[in-house]
Design a protein around this nucleic acid. Sequence first.
DNA 1: AGGGATGTGAAAAGGATGTGAACTGCCTCC
DNA 2: GGAGGCAGTTCACATCCTTTTCACATCCCT
Lengths: 280, 280
Amino acid sequence: MQESQSAATPFAPASLSSVIGVRVQPGPIRLAVIDTDSGFVRVLAKRVGEMGWQQRVLTAAPRPDELVSMRLHALVVDLALFGERGWEFLAQVCESVPGLAVIVCTGSSSVAQRVRGLRLGADDWITKPCHPQEVIARVEAVVRRRKRGAPGAAQDRPVVAGELEIRPDQFQAFVGGQSIDLTRREFELLHLLANAGGRVLERDDIYQHVWGYAMVRGDRSVDVFVRKVRQKIERFSPGWTYIHTHFGIGYRFEPEVPDEDTPGPELEPEESERFMLPGQ
Amino acid sequence: MQESQSAATPFAPASLSSVIGVRVQPGPIRLAVIDTDSGFVRVLAKRVGEMGWQQRVLTAAPRPDELVSMRLHALVVDLALFGERGWEFLAQVCESVPGLAVIVCTGSSSVAQRVRGLRLGADDWITKPCHPQEVIARVEAVVRRRKRGAPGAAQDRPVVAGELEIRPDQFQAFVGGQSIDLTRREFELLHLLANAGGRVLERDDIYQHVWGYAMVRGDRSVDVFVRKVRQKIERFSPGWTYIHTHFGIGYRFEPEVPDEDTPGPELEPEESERFMLPGQ
DNA sequence: AGGGATGTGAAAAGGATGTGAACTGCCTCC
DNA sequence: GGAGGCAGTTCACATCCTTTTCACATCCCT
């Protein structure tokens, strides 16, 4: 009964460990680099990959709406690529994608240029040549600062799956606007699974991520909580199956309405099939 | 702690939350510089003064709680002053005052040192000698990044919710024009919750924003103040519920009047749609 | 069929929150 | 200078909710 995984993302496939990761973030940082310096890009990409971040390398300026659709956390850009239009690009990006961390990484520059760049909205300005570790550290610093800015889970967008709506800002899931009444652990479990992009997550990984420490052999907590979540969802979204068991492995999230006849007696299946994979 | 006032004006009393908060920069940036390099400090102070910022120059390390009471937005520090204890100081400040922007400005350093500093929580690392304009631009960039998310002066606009009217200009809440008589912290707490747009705020976030520094485990201050605020509101607006508890997470603000005519036995009372917020 | 893995229900254990009150430090007023 | 009040903190206790644990049923793969 093994099932195939979901489609690949535009980003380099992230390892499971990076999804479950060490608690740096709700997930790995999504980073884009705009540069043509192949040596620099290669070295940086290697380090970024080691960090478990997702990355994209661009050699030309994307449109602002493309940047938005990439759902980036940070952008590293060499303004030299753009010549005179660099300032314009920088200003436009900073204005149209205010949540995006912008780090300029470019060759030698004057104080006046750096000040201008920072004033236009850049978050940092690094002078080449530079060490990739420093670039990474500065990206981290900027992203960290950005997340601290807004209390509450403004960073996570709601996920709609089948009749379910998972809202990180409420630490709660809803069906038809009504709260499922999940506890914190239950919610985190569901949230983790729903954001795994259809992958099967192993028990140990789930436990590690939701409970925060390593699972001891024989611990049934994950199973018990999966049951609780299933029950609570079933009460409000009968007929649907969201959490699938993979024997000997773990669990996988995917909304599935068992064929036909018994749709919702009262619940309209309006938002069916609207499952969106988180970001990417 | 030794200290010298570089600007004649002591810091103007300001909203506690504006120190750490998501708030837009209503007034000038409050900056402290820890350095003994009199030449650097003098030149920087001049520029800072021209910007209209408020500043303090310190020549020794203040305690974290002193930093909090200064209500700073940013701190520029030369780690060289501290010798080996510099890392310790940096780590402690960044951890206990998470809302404070920390910019290290120090002499020549290695990549490893800069990476270490940034990882410990510094927001930027500038190498001396440097141009004061660049220091200012970088401080601005960091502070700007932190206050993201609140367009305009929405945070200082009155909020009307249910029978409650929260007036930031008065540091007070009213019911029917009558003051609820909240204390400073009580008001800050209510104001923070009411401006969260219905999101659930975690205790740690609340504490960090209202109290200004990191909450230690076991601190019940948030709970106690929530009770005080609830009591005071209840006296003037009986029947309404404004602050909701989310077990294991924190609190959420949403005005709700229990309908007494249609007591649905087990069904949750419908969520109120009378709650309007300006921003968000 | 056998052994291990998972589903299920309920009781026990563990934590979190509500609440009242004592305690501290600071300020004002007498 | 001291009494009294106010704001904020800390503590103890009651209560409620959550999480863990356990025994047993059921399911799956070999």
